[in-house]
Write a protein that binds this DNA or RNA. Structure first.
Lengths: 203, 203
DNA sequence: GTCTATACATCGATAGAC
DNA sequence: GTCTATCGATGTATAGAC
């Protein structure tokens, strides 16, 4: 990829993430990239295609990092701790990206799924790796038999929601939740791990 | 409010929620309301003002229903069960609304907070009512001393996240999560209540 | 209040010089 | 590959008749 193309992608990502597909302007993207508007069309033919390119990149970034947050350990508690820590660390500075994905998701649906499986297959998984971890932990008696899908929903929900609601929650609770404060993040990590572990640990 | 004005608000809500502020078109709203485009401007002067009106309504709807999901009971477990059930029932058919709020939130921030406190004050609360419930439960020894803010983040996260991620999760997990299936909702309710209660119940 | 017609700005996209 | 200039479509908003 040429340097110009890279500059365009970078700028487009920033603008699209902030304003969404509809809110973003090709002129703004061009300005931000320090090039002319016509060049955007030379490289990407249309706004739709440029958006698609950006969207694909960003989704794959998230997927890759979800997978990377899965450690190799066989111990479920270790896996849990590692996952929450790594994942929180990755998404915290990427609030905008998360919001963007969840917003644009409603319009693109099917496409995203294929990106997921593309990355999964690249890594040699033929089942969702988190589901595998949970199943394995159940089979080996490390945790009680629980519904893996619901567990994932709870886990991800607790990680992601605070990010997306943070500016609001901060105000409404009249409570300083500063996502960029490591102390909050550490506390959040502990709360999530404790709650989940409490719910799944064997008697 | 005149019948026409009401029709406009209703139509505008539907379109804005689905396409966002930038994606929505005044023509489409007018068509949907069965009136002429010029009439939109007669009543609301501009797209911005119409959007603001719609946004305020929708946010207040959510806030009101969060509050209504809080039962009068003193028993924390009952409160928890009631809250999750009522809240899940309310938001499940309103996925679009939730997505919309979280997306548009980033641009409007401060405004929303004032809506919250407006409704809180109307109901005579001078503290966040959920925080009050939790504090009271701690003081009366019904639950262990936990951080109320983190508890709320966990609770709401587990309720809201599945909604926003549902179409995706459904595909990725190769698992039929049908939000409109009462069985899923019931199971989800149980999972959330159990997990939270497990984490807060006294020794 | 409600309509038709239209002004005015801006957007995505293209043509063509270099 | 990169630019300037511009087209055509479409968007918000207004004027003015009824």
């Amino acid at each position: 990829m040429s340097a110009t193309e890279q500059k365009i992608i970078d700028s487009a990502s920033e603008i699209f993430l902030k304003k969404g597909k509809d809110g973003a302007r090709m002129q703004e993207i061009a300005d931000h990239a320090g090039i002319n508007k016509a060049l955007l069309f030379y490289y990407f033919r249309s706004k739709d295609r440029l958006f698609e390119e950006v969207f694909k990149n960003e989704v794959k970034t998230i997927i890759t990092n979800i997978i990377d947050a899965i450690s190799e350990t066989d111990n479920f508690y270790d896996f849990l701790t590692q996952f929450v820590r790594t994942y929180l660390k990755f998404i915290t500075p990427r609030r905008t990206l998360m919001r963007f994905i969840f917003w644009e998701i409603s319009k693109t649906r099917g496409t995203i799924t294929s990106y997921f499986w593309e990355v999964f297959n690249q890594r040699g998984y033929n089942e969702n790796p988190i589901v595998s971890k949970i199943k394995h932990a159940i089979d080996s008696g490390q945790i009680r038999p629980v519904n893996p899908e619901h567990l994932i929903l709870s886990l991800l929900g607790m990680c992601i929601f605070p990010l997306m609601a943070a500016p609001l929650i901060e105000d409404i609770l009249r409570y300083k939740i500063n996502l960029d404060d490591p102390a909050f993040l550490k506390k959040r990590e502990k709360v999530i791990v404790d709650l989940i572990w409490n719910g799944v640990k064997p008697e």
